[in-house]
Design a protein around this nucleic acid. Structure first.
Lengths: 210, 210
DNA sequence: GAAATAGTGTCTGTTAGACACTATCAG
DNA sequence: CTGATAGTGTCTAACAGACACTATTTC
């Protein structure tokens, strides 16, 4: 009985997955489940011990149980996936850990690569009908950052005006009044996510289908 | 390590869940996992042993692992859900089993009731973007039966013409040429599901969002 | 004032939802 | 011919997608 975790963040406009050094290679964080330990708590513990990162969002992904390695034993592994806000991504990660970009997933054992694919798929799916994307942003963010996030995860460009229209219609972000200065160009207004408005819409589903 | 199964079918225009007699009550089918047994195979075995039913569709639902009963032990239970075609629903079920309607779910242990709710929710969700509904129908069916199925699972009425238009547009059912005589009234044309057409559409998602 | 980024509205084609009648069968 | 079920088309409102310019800032 093991518990594994796929931690994802956005870094350099790319979705990345945390790997930890282990057995001379790089692997997803995972560990054994304590005798009296609830599954989710085990996932949280493993994240703390092996990644040293604050996770905003944690959800069960899938349980793998057809793993029959050479020794003939069936190992059951319950997998979770978690999201880490963009600004924490670089900072908090413990030594020996690394944020892999999609092109680097090959360094993981093959089964783990498939787990990651499943996690990314799930995240893409959830993006359309939940506000899960906001978990990947800092508390305050610009609309350009929000759009960038959607584009990165969905893997395609979105129209700026259509995107903003939709966000405005839903009213799930509110202007904080602050601005974020850019290196060059006009400063951008900062927004924060309105959990209350989102709650009202959530039941209907299909919130953010771009 | 246990494996449990939520089997669902349509009977009398209602979604029903299979319960088996156990420990003096009624419970979902479940059993222990063999040492070298893959999870899905265990689910199939348990269905065979305890329900004696042919399942068309079987998918992992969720893994529960926060179950800490009085004795302080944490039990991990991997749950699957399966769909049984409507016409087999009454027939194949083994003695000691019963198809519960939604109002009867209270006879199940409380945790199992929550598992069933999760399964029903998942089925509703999948209905919109997969062809999972067809697993609940016999190989040949009328459009009225198909619509009835959607209405039952979604819990609301649908417009007959809009429903048929959508189905026709997608082309995922093909007329077999046969007819089904009704007790009264005009006979209905029989259709069957076209897996090939569906495959082409599947990637796009959002197939059957009514 | 040049380069860079933020921010804003309209038009058009497609889709979803509301709606009522004719066709065919058993008795 | 009556009762029951199958089957069919149009109109309208809402939504999604394409599209180009002005505003504000740094250097």
């Amino acid at each position: 009985m093991a518990v594994g975790v796929v931690l994802m963040t956005l870094k350099d406009d790319a979705l990345r997955v945390l790997a930890v050094a282990r057995d001379g290679g790089e692997q997803l964080p995972y560990g054994r489940l304590g005798r009296q330990e609830p599954l989710r708590r085990a996932a949280e513990r493993i994240i703390g011990e092996q990644a040293g990162i604050a996770v905003d969002y944690l959800e069960q992904l899938y349980t793998f149980g057809n793993i029959v390695p050479a020794d003939g034993e069936r190992l059951v592994e319950v997998c979770y996936y978690g999201l880490v806000p963009a600004d924490d991504g670089g900072g908090g990660a413990a030594p020996g850990t690394r944020w892999l970009r999609e092109s680097e997933l090959g360094v993981l054992p093959e089964l783990q690569e498939r787990i990651v694919q499943r996690a990314v798929q799930r995240l893409r799916g959830k993006l359309a009908y939940t506000a899960v994307g906001f978990e990947l942003l800092p508390e305050q963010f610009t609309l350009a950052e929000l759009q960038q996030l959607y584009e990165t995860i969905l893997g395609r460009r979105l129209d700026k005006r259509n995107f903003r229209r939709r966000i405005a219609e839903l009213g799930i972000v509110v202007a904080t009044g602050d601005e974020k200065a850019q290196a060059r160009g006009r400063p951008a207004a900062l927004y924060s996510f309105s959990a209350e408005v989102f709650q009202r819409l959530d039941s209907r589903g299909d919130i953010l289908a771009f």
